[in-house]
Deep mutational scan, measured.
Amino acid sequence: EQIEAIAKFDYMGRSPRELSFKKGASLLLYHRASEDWWEGRHNGVDGLIPHQYIVVQD
């Protein structure tokens, strides 16, 4: 089940696996990879999304 999230802040990925996005961006989350990271998608690209930078939608 995919979960929708909105970016709270701009984020610049620090490795090829991390996604970069702007504040207000819509993100799709697949699952929680760790306490700090989600596996997800932004603009058709899959990668890691930092939990602290997003708001998960109910």
Rank of each mutant, 00 (worst) to 15 (best):
Q52R: 11
D36R: 08
S20C: 07
M12N: 14
Y30G: 07
W38F: 03
A25G: 09
L27R: 01
H31W: 10
E39I: 05
D10G: 07
S20Y: 02
S26F: 15
Y11F: 03
K23S: 13
Y30E: 06
K8M: 05
P50G: 12
V45T: 15
Q2N: 10
I49L: 07
K23Y: 08
E35D: 11
S20P: 03
K23W: 03
I54R: 01
H51V: 12
R17N: 15
Q52T: 12
V55I: 08
I49A: 04
D36T: 08
I49S: 00
H31R: 13
V56I: 15
D46A: 15
I54D: 02
G40V: 00
G24H: 06
H31L: 09
H31P: 01
K22M: 11
E35H: 03
D36C: 10
V45R: 11
D46Y: 05
H31I: 05
Q57D: 08
I6C: 04
R41N: 09
P50H: 06
I6T: 08
Y53T: 10
E18C: 04
S20E: 05
I54G: 01
Y53N: 03
V55L: 14
E4R: 10
H31S: 10
Y11S: 02
R14H: 03
S20A: 06
E35C: 14
E35S: 10
V45G: 09
K8T: 07
G40H: 01
K8S: 10
E35V: 09
L28D: 11
L48M: 12
G24D: 15
L48H: 06
I3W: 11
V56P: 13
S20M: 03
E35K: 07
G47F: 01
R14K: 03
W37K: 05
R41T: 13
G24S: 08
A5G: 12
R32I: 04
I49G: 00
G44F: 08
L19W: 00
H42S: 12
G47D: 00
H42P: 00
A33Y: 08
L19H: 02
F21R: 01
A33R: 14
Q52A: 13
Q52Y: 03
I6D: 04
S20I: 02
R32N: 03
Y30K: 14
A5F: 03
E1V: 09
A5I: 02
V55D: 06
G40M: 00
S15L: 13
E18K: 03
D46G: 05
V45A: 14
D10Y: 03
E18G: 04
R41Q: 09
K8P: 02
E18I: 04
V55Q: 06
Q52W: 07
K23M: 06
V56G: 09
Q57W: 08
N43W: 05
A7L: 00
E35W: 06
R17T: 08
Y11Q: 03
P50L: 05
G24I: 00
V56S: 13
E1D: 07
A33C: 10
H42I: 05
Q2K: 15
F21I: 02
E35I: 09
Q2F: 15
G40P: 00
R14D: 06
L28R: 10
G13E: 08
Q57I: 15
I54K: 01
A25C: 07
W38Y: 05
E39A: 09
N43K: 15
H51A: 13
N43S: 13
A5P: 01
H31Q: 14
E18W: 02
D46S: 04
D10L: 02
I3L: 07
V56Y: 14
P16Y: 10
R32S: 04
L28Y: 12
S15V: 10
R17Q: 14
A33Q: 15
Y53V: 13
D36P: 07
I3K: 15
E4A: 08
G44A: 12
P50C: 07
R32A: 05
G13W: 03
A33G: 10
Q52K: 10
K22T: 10
R41L: 08
H42Q: 09
L28S: 12
L19P: 02
Y11L: 02
R17K: 14
D36Y: 10
L28G: 10
D36L: 12
P16V: 07
K8R: 08
H31F: 11
G47W: 00
E39F: 06
D58L: 11
R17M: 11
V56H: 04
G24R: 04
M12C: 14
H31G: 11
S34G: 11
W38N: 00
R41Y: 13
G13L: 03
P50A: 06
H51L: 08
A25K: 09
R14E: 15
P50Q: 07
R17H: 08
D58H: 10
I49K: 00
A7D: 00
I54V: 12
S15H: 10
R41G: 11
W37M: 15
P16S: 12
Y30S: 12
A5N: 02
S15M: 10
H42L: 08
Q52V: 06
H31E: 14
A25P: 00
K8G: 08
Q52P: 12
A5Y: 03
A5C: 08
W37V: 07
S15D: 15
L27I: 10
G44T: 13
M12V: 10
E35P: 14
E35Y: 10
L27S: 00
L28F: 08
G47C: 02
K22R: 11
W38L: 01
E18Q: 12
H51W: 05
Q2A: 09
Y53F: 15
R17W: 05
P16M: 04
V56Q: 11
K22C: 05
G40Y: 01
Y30N: 09
W38G: 01
V45H: 04
S15E: 14
N43G: 13
E4Y: 07
L27W: 01
H42F: 08
R41H: 09
F21M: 05
S34V: 04
H42D: 03
K23E: 14
H51T: 06
Q2T: 04
H31D: 14
P16H: 10
R32H: 04
F21E: 01
L28K: 06
P50T: 01
Q57R: 12
F9Y: 12
L28V: 11
A33K: 05
R32E: 04
R32M: 11
D58Y: 14
F9Q: 13
P16R: 11
R17G: 14
W37R: 03
P16Q: 15
G47M: 00
I54M: 08
S34H: 05
D58I: 03
Y11G: 01
W37S: 06
A7V: 02
V55M: 04
S34K: 10
G44C: 09
Y11N: 05
A7N: 02
A33M: 08
F21P: 01
D58N: 12
L28I: 08
D10P: 06
Q57S: 11
G13Q: 12
P16F: 07
S15Y: 13
A5H: 02
K8H: 06
K8N: 15
G13M: 06
I3A: 09
E35T: 13
L27E: 00
Y11E: 00
K8C: 06
Q2G: 14
D58R: 04
G44V: 04
W38I: 01
P50R: 09
Q52D: 10
K8I: 08
R14I: 09
R14A: 07
A7P: 00
Q2C: 15
H42N: 06
M12G: 14
R17P: 14
I54S: 02
R14N: 13
W38M: 00
L27H: 00
K23N: 04
G24N: 10
H42K: 05
H51G: 11
Q2M: 13
L29F: 01
A7Y: 01
S15P: 08
L27V: 09
R41E: 09
L29E: 00
L48R: 13
G44P: 01
R14C: 15
R17V: 07
G40R: 00
H51I: 04
L19G: 01
L28A: 07
R14S: 15
R32Y: 03
P16E: 15
M12P: 04
